[in-house]
């Protein structure tokens, strides 16, 4: 037997649990089928994933897939500023001086103690009315050369939606940054003070201590929970649908309304989110294992 590895064999308790679960699923399916009298029709779904474009003579993504890609874009784009917020405020949380601690604490407490939905409504109002004009995003897009526009579209998606996507990214990043701040803070504080003492004892300066001793260890501890938080970020991006960011959930709502195939659309969307998040968690697991191997 290989140590540290569970044998994949089912006992009778496992069998009983599985049977019960299957029975429950069968019952729900039966209820939906016979009592709800819902007439399933999956035939419209493929069309809303991809459709044939006569002009371009090729398959192009339709609403659901467009939303899916926007969701991926939102997640990837907001990951960077969110991690940045997390890193900066997280470090500030552990600072010796009061002001940085106060600022970052305020940021974290404000966001953690307001429901995400409410935060996003309030924050969106400020973003769309204040920050976006300030950034001059619309002018930038309008005045861009074709080549420039193409590279912008590669990153942010269709030109008409760029301001929309950027608002979404800022919202999501602000919001997720608070959670990442807490992860980074915990990571830094998990490095025992004795490491600091050892570093100071060989004459390292505060900065060297930080750069050579604390940070490398903190990063290693923080990567797994940050990866988990990233998956949460992907899922939480769905609340951006409420401020009309054209991501998967928003376009799913539109599709559901226009086709009236509510269950089919939402089940498809659930499947898309699941695939994305499950893929990410598998990828992170593998990375983590590889990092662990490299360490020994």
């Amino acid at each position: 037997m290989i140590p540290g590895r569970n044998r994949a064999r089912l006992g009778w308790i496992d069998a009983a649990v599985l049977t019960a679960a299957l029975a429950a699923v069968a019952y729900v399916v039966y209820r939906v089928d016979s009592v709800l009298e819902y007439r399933w029709d999956w035939s419209v779904i493929p069309h809303f994933l991809y459709r044939w474009d006569d002009e371009a003579q090729r398959w192009i993504p339709n609403l659901l897939m467009r939303g899916f890609f926007t969701t991926i874009r939102l997640a990837l784009l907001s990951l960077i500023p969110a991690a940045l917020f997390g890193a900066v405020f997280g470090v500030m949380r552990t600072a010796g001086r009061l002001l940085p601690r106060l600022l970052s604490r305020t940021y974290v407490e404000l966001i953690r103690n307001i429901p995400p939905l409410v935060f996003i409504f309030i924050f969106y109002f400020f973003i769309s009315s204040q920050i976006m004009p300030l950034l001059g995003v619309e002018d930038l897009v309008r005045g861009a050369s074709p080549a420039r526009l193409r590279s912008l579209e590669l990153v942010f998606g269709p030109a008409s939606l760029i301001p929309n996507v950027i608002s979404g990214v800022i919202c999501l990043a602000m919001f997720q940054g608070a959670y990442m701040t807490e992860i980074v803070r915990a990571g830094i504080q998990s490095i025992p003070g004795t490491q600091t003492e050892a570093g100071l004892s060989i004459g390292l300066s505060r900065w060297q201590l930080w750069r050579r001793v604390i940070l490398p260890q903190a990063i290693r501890r923080v990567i797994p929970p940050l990866a988990g938080q990233f998956i949460t970020l992907v899922k939480d991006s769905s609340i951006l649908s409420l401020i009309s960011i054209q991501e998967l959930s928003f376009l799913a709502m539109e599709t559901a309304v226009s086709t009236t195939r509510v269950f089919e659309v939402w089940i498809t969307v659930a499947g898309l989110y699941f695939c994305l998040c499950y893929f990410l968690s598998l990828a992170f697991d593998r990375l983590e294992k590889r990092a662990a191997m490299a360490r020994t």
């Binding site: 004795t194 490491q195 050892a198 001793v213």
Partner: peptide
């Protein structure tokens, strides 16, 4: 130190 405190 008693607990060595090497950088792991």
């Amino acid at each position: 130190f008693q607990e060595f405190n090497l950088f792991p």
